[in-house]
């Protein structure tokens, strides 16, 4: 990596920070992936900060009536999407208006939420904490509760050298845990590393994916991170116009962030409102369900044609994007050990 030093000061800086994140093994960029979007130099990963973030992620203390944690809606076994709920459920069983997406590879995200309303991973946690249908809390009161807790005095001190919790430290710690959620160990990835091969079906499915889907669900993240209208009819009850709410620009009407297809096997139901229960229904949408409108993506103006067999092949390819190692990685699970090792409140 040293050769970069001669090029420019700016590159040297990238070089150094990439080195720091990989030296301690806390964050590794998978082979041939782009550079992450998250600026690690402003929040360098440490084991203690990740542990604190993980404890917070699993702790219902972040919700108003201490019943809902981040993991209530983002469960590891579905790549941190909401298990089998079209619209996510929050405190007092209130129902939100959108489907909880997977939380993977967030270090590469440019924006967050289906409409990109959140501009930085650090700021993401503020939204569910203060949403009345989600956790119904205020960040001010969460900080107050954390500062009453011996466990968190301890964890905040270990992480930041300051036992008093602040908003900045809370948010940075939660980010650190989420940044470690890298999923790059599917069959597709092992194939790219030349460690396995596709079946004939999967191979044909990959070809069909490249023809019809890759312009938006682009490798290796399986999203181009853009906002597109993929032709879903407007739900007249939810009246969700997506990106337009953020930009107030009519050209953004009905556009939503292109979601990743990684771990798609587990993140059903599908789309921003969870309207499709399975992948067959998704493919039926792309072949016969596209609704034309002013903002419809150009690629979808001509109908996608897939025979019944081709649909089966395409789905068999999509299933090669499942990363079971990720789903069962104990580093991402409930932080029993972290919490047991501490003095009780």
């Amino acid at each position: 990596m040293n050769w970069r030093r001669n090029v420019s000061v700016c590159l040297l800086f990238i070089c150094v920070s990439a080195f720091v994140t990989s030296k301690d093994g806390l964050f590794n960029i998978p082979l041939n992936w782009p550079k992450p979007n998250y600026n690690f130099s402003k929040n360098p990963l440490t084991k203690d900060k990740i542990d604190l973030g993980r404890a917070l992620f699993y702790d219902p203390i972040l919700s108003q009536n201490n019943t809902i944690s981040c993991s209530s809606c983002h469960s590891q076994f579905t790549a941190f999407a909401h298990v089998d709920h079209a619209l996510s459920h929050g405190i007092y069983d209130r129902i939100g208006t959108r489907n909880a997406p997977v939380l993977i590879n967030l270090a590469w995200n440019k924006t967050f939420m289906w409409d990109g309303a959140i501009n930085h991973l650090d700021m993401q946690a503020l939204a569910p904490i203060s949403h009345p249908d989600e956790m119904g809390e205020s960040i001010e009161h969460v900080i107050y509760k954390l500062n009453q807790s011996k466990i968190y005095h301890h964890l905040f001190f270990k992480a930041f050298g300051d036992s008093i919790a602040s908003g900045e430290h809370l948010l940075k710690a939660i980010s650190q845990f989420m940044l470690t959620l890298v999923s790059a160990n599917s069959k597709y990835d092992s194939l790219k590393r030349k460690e396995s091969v596709f079946t004939r079906q999967e191979k044909n499915g990959y070809k069909l994916y490249k023809q019809n889907c890759a312009s938006c669900h682009t490798e290796p993240l399986f999203t181009n991170q853009k906002f597109e209208n993929n032709g879903l009819p407007l739900d007249l009850e939810l009246k969700d116009f997506g990106r337009m709410k953020v930009t107030q620009n009519p050209n953004d009407s009905l556009k939503f962030k292109v979601p990743t297809l990684r771990n798609i096997e587990f993140s059903y139901p599908y789309m921003h409102d969870g309207r499709f229960k399975n992948l067959n229904a998704v493919l039926d949408h792309y072949t016969t369900g596209i609704v034309k409108s002013k903002t419809l993506a150009l690629q979808l103006e001509q109908p996608i044609v897939l025979s019944a067999n081709e649909k089966i092949d395409l789905i068999s390819f999509l299933l090669t994007l499942s990363d079971k190692k990720f789903l069962f990685n104990t580093e991402f699970g409930y932080p029993k050990n972290i919490l047991l090792s501490l003095p009780k409140d």
Binding site: N39, K42, N43, A117, I118, N119, H120, L121, D122, M123, L126, A127, I129, S130, H131, I139, E140, I143, S166, G167, E168, H169, L171, K172, S175, V246
Partner: peptide, 24 residues
């Protein structure tokens, strides 16, 4: 500064001057 993530001091979001549902 608006797109720089979590910041402390007077810019800490606990100061009540940060929108939660849409960053800024």
């Amino acid at each position: 500064t608006n797109v720089s993530g979590a910041i402390g001091g007077d810019l800490d979001p606990i100061k009540g001057m940060y929108w939660t549902w849409q960053s800024g």
